[in-house]
Amino acid sequence: MYAFIVPGLLFFLVFAYLPMLGNVVAFQDFSPFRGIAGSAWVGLDNFTALATDPEVRRAFVNTIVIATLQLIFAFPAPILLALLLNSLLSETVRRFVQTIVYLPHFLSWVIVIAIWTQVVGGDSLATSLLSLVGVEGFNAMGEAETFKILVVLQSMWKDVGWGTIIFFAAIAGIPRELYEAAAVDGAGGWRRTWSITLPGITPVITLLLILNLGGFLTVGFEQMLLQQPAVGADAAQVLDTFVYFRGVAGGQWGIAAAAGIVKGIVATVMVLAANRIAKKLGSQGVF
């Protein structure tokens, strides 16, 4: 019976746990050619360099702000959409809307950003319409001040439909009799949603929230990298792009790995904390 877990176990061992050993390069002046065995050990120098590097501070702040905004706005969005779609009576309309809102998930970030540029960029549909009423110089894709909001909106547009799938599944698992009984008792649509649907999917929401916190500091590498030239590093440098520029482009693998470890530690702490809080609030948590 336990043999069934072997493939999955091997998968995680080979592709998740073994690569973690590579984190030792965070304590080295690592060179790919010299390898781990041939690279010099530098103790905590890379972490010290991180702590004193203003670029890291900027990347960290940007990451936290964007992650928080995404948590507040992007995480609940699919729940709301799922509830909204669930309230639609027509199966045909519901399926049509679902299909439409799922589609952006399958587009790459390059395409998504190109579409947004054509719609709200500097020479776009929006500028054409606004110029008709005398508003000139609108360019939502090049405004550093509003970039973080733009990032969240793009994420929501791309993934809100996809995110509804799990919530739909959870809603489908709620016994129909509860709704029927509530209707007999005179409960309206809002009351049924509030008292039956939401409590019914709360375990799933909690689970996804905790898992989401595990990736809290992962805020979209491609999305940031592609838009950084237009809005600048002050607005769009996040930990993932920092790691890319220092490691892949700059060859400073030790510092890049140290940044990755810090990110991992923060994520672990957040998951543990969220799990504990969830349990204290009466939920099962993840573990």
């Binding site: 390059v110 190109a114 540029t117 960029g121 776009s124 030239p229």
Partner: peptide
Amino acid sequence: FDPNALTPA
């Protein structure tokens, strides 16, 4: 300049 000069589009 094209206002989209710095974008991927």
